[in-house]
Nucleic acid binder design. Structure first.
Lengths: 191, 191, 191, 191
DNA sequence: AATGAATGAGGATTCATTCAT
DNA sequence: GATGAATGAATCCTCATTCAT
């Protein structure tokens, strides 16, 4: 069982690396297995089929992302401080590493047709939203929901634009835009 | 020549429909050709290979989108009126019809590795940005660029979220969020 | 009709050049037609199908070869002089030019299955043989046939080896071997 | 590993048979695989692509030919006896069986463009040549090289002519011509 | 549990050939 | 006569998946 967990992790890591290298889900399971140092058969043994392997990979990415958010929130109690931490986490280097970008883009494609992918994506959206709302409510009251939706959308859109623009090497400006949007939203409340 | 243009259009339309039906670029050229009522060989005759066919399809989508923007701006001179028109156009029914969503999502995937796709995407971003800046400058001066970037990102992000959430049937709320963001940005200027 | 002959010649010349460039019969009729400056349809109009075009090409090559032999024999009356001329002609530069080598090799392949190619090849062998016998008989009497067969085989074999050995640039040594064989055969008669 | 060798042998044998049946390299890998009783994918798994499969086939044919030569030389020590054995081996039934002829002819075509085929062919020529020279030297001294070249060329040429002349059923006459040439060459030395 | 040999359906692409103009 | 657009069968090769060991 311990060994199994390790194999699974290796296969998932290999999936991220292979997808990252190709940009596409068009990588063979054999390639992935080889990169993980196991036989192709094992990938099927553990994950059933290629789509399940990819979904497991996305679950892993989302889990890691969630853990990162929680870690970055530790000890932060001020709403603005928390919001800043949440928003910045989305542009932390790990989000652009390896095959994270490729995984996300292909995940979007899959989400059109795979109910399970859709479920996962909705879960991510919901959690992100409540994280924001939780810290926005003390500052914005009922406006929190609207602001959270806009900030959420902005994060996704800027992530997309940033990830696909190879001339960017530093995600700083993207983060700055998101924080600026937060500032603007909050300042507009007082108007 | 006239016939050639017609065939090309039909193949492009068929590509959009097939990709839309599958959600993926994993549709066969033969399927597309059949849907267009021509032989598979003809698709290769006109477009060279599958990727070129898809790129031609995206160029067509972007051209149509550009024409729609221009049409919706006709007769509008007030900055806010123009901005509203631009932002609303991104959520007009045609943007969700057929396989437009699928085309866009797969285009993002391709943009990671295809220089031509990257070029096209950058062009779209640039045009969208200057369209916004042109109308924002009279209202926001030097802040126009920053606002345009945020609005652009927000549009992309909300489009993505909206497109992938099958429970939405009416893009109204997404548009409302974008227009609200514009309002917030403008009101923050006066603060 | 005059124009037709010209077109045919151009197509045949283009066939030789294309086959020569590829080494194979795996060149498209469209390539050949393009090289000849005509439409692919015309090649079919004139020759019926690809195999006929190739056979016409071989007939042309054999005709040219025959004419060259006759030209080189003009004014030569001495048997040895005539034999030398015949043998040397087989290694004249024109036999190695363009696609002559490729045409011959592919002709051999075709001769296994195409009766028409077989007929042509047999014709070539017969003519070559009688050419040699005609000049050998005064020197060798009844031994002429045997000698002619051996010289004929030697010419084909050395041509093959020479044509396929890219390190050879000068066919001189091959010719020398053939002439030496002639000398040996004749000297053996006196023994 | 044992099974792999067997599969490879079967595929090679099937390649010879299929090429022999068609006369051409224009046989599908699927046909070959079917004849070998395996799936088409396996041919690619073992040989990479069609050309490699054919080259492996030629290597096998050349290996078999070499073994046959060696077997026929066992116990023969007299130079003339050895030369006779070598020359006769080239016209032994196995050289005309199955698709050996077709394989050779297509090999010649391929040798124009494939470096690997060229290498193989040169190797065959070299070995054949030294085999002859080894036995000729005691009889002909320095003339051995020239004689070997002529005998080598004659063998190839007569093999070609014989193989392509379907009216021949017995290679006897071809062998006789080669042996006669040997006799002539040797008798000319004493002159 | 693990392997990796083997499968075979499927897909991009090519090209001889046709035919309306 | 000439064109070249159009066809569609054919082919090489890939790869998800299975299964005997």
């Amino acid at each position: 069982m311990k060994a199994e967990q390790k194999r699974r992790q290796e296969l998932i890591a290999a999936t991220i690396r292979e997808i990252g290298a190709e940009g596409t889900l068009n990588v063979t399971v054999s390639q992935i297995a080889k990169r993980a140092g196991v036989s192709p058969g094992l990938a099927f043994h553990y994950f059933g089929d290629k789509e399940q392997l990819f979904l497991a990979t996305m679950r892993s990415i989302l889990r890691t992302y969630g853990a990162l958010i929680r870690a970055n929130l530790v000890g932060k109690t001020e709403p603005v401080e928390r919001l800043t931490a949440i928003l910045e986490t989305n542009f932390s280097p790990s989000q652009f590493e390896d095959g994270a970008v490729a995984a996300w883009l292909n995940f979007y494609v899959l989400a059109q047709t795979s109910p399970e992918a859709q479920r996962l994506l909705a879960l991510y959206h919901r959690r992100f939203h409540s994280n924001l709302v939780y810290s926005l409510r003390p500052l914005a009251g009922d406006a929190a929901h609207g602001i959270a939706e806009r900030l959420g959308g902005l994060v996704d859109g800027l992530y997309l634009r940033f990830a696909l623009n190879r001339s960017h090497v530093d995600p700083g400006p993207a983060v700055a835009q998101v924080l600026k949007a937060l500032e603007v939203e909050l300042s507009a409340l007082d108007g």
